[in-house]
């Protein structure tokens, strides 16, 4: 199982080189985002227990 994983990984690397660093059959990349939504979804601690 482990050997198979390593082999697959090697194949992917080779594919990447052949396709100019682009791989096939992989997920589409989206820039990871981080957004602060605190005020929208969380009541303030002072007012919460009303």
């Amino acid at each position: 199982m482990k050997e198979e994983k390593i082999r697959n990984s090697e194949e992917t690397k080779v594919e990447s080189k052949l396709k100019g660093n682009k791989k096939v059959n992989t997920k589409e990349w989206k820039k990871p985002t981080l957004e602060d939504v605190s005020e929208k979804v969380m009541a303030q601690p002072y007012i919460r227990f009303t």
């Binding site: 005020e39 929208k40 979804v41 969380m42 009541a43 303030q44 601690p45 002072y46 007012i47 919460r48 227990f49 009303t50």
Partner: peptide, 24 residues
Amino acid sequence: VYYYPYDVIEELKYRLEYPSASAL
């Protein structure tokens, strides 16, 4: 030092638009 400058009515107005993801 944290203070909430609004009253409970202001909070209610806001939560009508943005209910919190919480349960009381």
